[in-house]
């Protein structure tokens, strides 16, 4: 029996009702949203359910939408059912003031570093993460560089001398 986007949507709404929302298909991939409180429940359901079996976390990352008040930060999970060869995208949103999301490390070992990276970039606080600290940037960094309000270049940097680049 092959799994289709419709079945997944149906199973999800059966289980979570109104809480999962915004179902859509983007370039063939099902995507939906859930409140951040139940992200683990959704992931668990997708993982454990015999029919769904999304046991592979392809990707986990964050997105910053500064214009959406109250839900500025999104955590995007890409899950993959290898047997049925179907992927889905699952998002949870959180406010920038208190960006707490439950960690998925208990379910996927691979989430460990991806969450650390997301924390490093966006400051999303993964509650329950075993070792939530910066991974790519230096520990002393005091901002979250990938948020839209921060410029690409560090404005305070002193190590760049424009004269050296023929722009003086």
């Amino acid at each position: 029996m092959s799994l289709t986007n419709e079945i997944i949507q149906q199973r999800l709404t059966e289980k979570f009702g109104e809480q999962v929302s915004e179902f859509s298909t983007s370039y063939g991939m099902l995507q939906f949203e859930a409140p951040k409180e139940i992200n683990l429940k959704v992931l668990n359901f997708l993982y454990d359910d015999a029919q769904l079996g999304f046991i592979f976390l392809t990707d986990l990352t964050g997105v910053h939408y500064p214009d959406q008040k109250g839900r500025e930060l999104a955590v995007v999970y890409h899950l993959h059912n290898l047997k049925e060869n179907i992927r889905l995208r699952f998002k949870v949103f959180t406010g920038v003031d208190q960006p707490d999301v439950y960690t998925a490390t208990g379910l996927f070992s691979s989430a460990n570093w991806m969450e650390r990276e997301t924390y490093d970039f966006y400051g999303i606080n993964f509650v329950g993460h075993p070792n939530l600290k910066r991974i790519l940037n230096v520990d002393e960094m005091d901002y979250f560089p990938l948020r839209k309000e921060f410029p690409l270049e560090d404005q305070t940097r002193i190590d760049k001398d424009d004269e050296m680049f023929g722009r003086g």
Partner: peptide
């Protein structure tokens, strides 16, 4: 506008591009 995820088999495995 839209969201795309595309993956290729890179040298080390699934190299994915998630483009918004």
């Amino acid at each position: 506008a839209g969201e795309v995820y595309h993956a290729v088999e890179g040298g080390n495995g699934e190299l994915g591009f998630y483009l918004i």
